[in-house]
Amino acid sequence: MTKVAIIASNGGLFDAYKVFNIATAAASIDAEVGIFFTFEGLNLIHKEAHKNLPMPQGAEHFQEGFQKANVPPIEELVSMANEMDVKMTACQMTMDVMNLEKDQFVDGVDVGGAATFLNFARDANITLTF
């Protein structure tokens, strides 16, 4: 089975699409997928923040393009990822730094450290960082 390990360390809307598009697409080819959310990447799974992620500065005009192209909202991709058994891990250390608790994240998120991710990525076929 193909195994895909992803690190999400940025918290913008574009970052969220990169992470969740690849993750759900990988899950749809029956790959085992794990995402490790760290630093600003934690925004992507934060219950409120992930519904309203910022566009990169100067790229706000793409908003209309997203609507016109009928791109699914991040919320939908997150619940899709959950439904398809994508393993989501929030980084404990950055949670402490940013003063975040597990119950502030969407359902299905586990908490772990660097070793947790490394153990998953050890035999991954594809490793990606966003």
């Binding site: 697409a25 899950a27 080819i29 192209a69 009928n70 699914p72 899709m80 398809m84």
Partner: peptide, 13 residues
């Protein structure tokens, strides 16, 4: 219809 990447493959799956 009307869905963009990656939704068609997710739905197909």
């Amino acid at each position: 219809k009307g869905l963009t990447c990656p939704m068609p493959i997710i739905r197909t799956k």
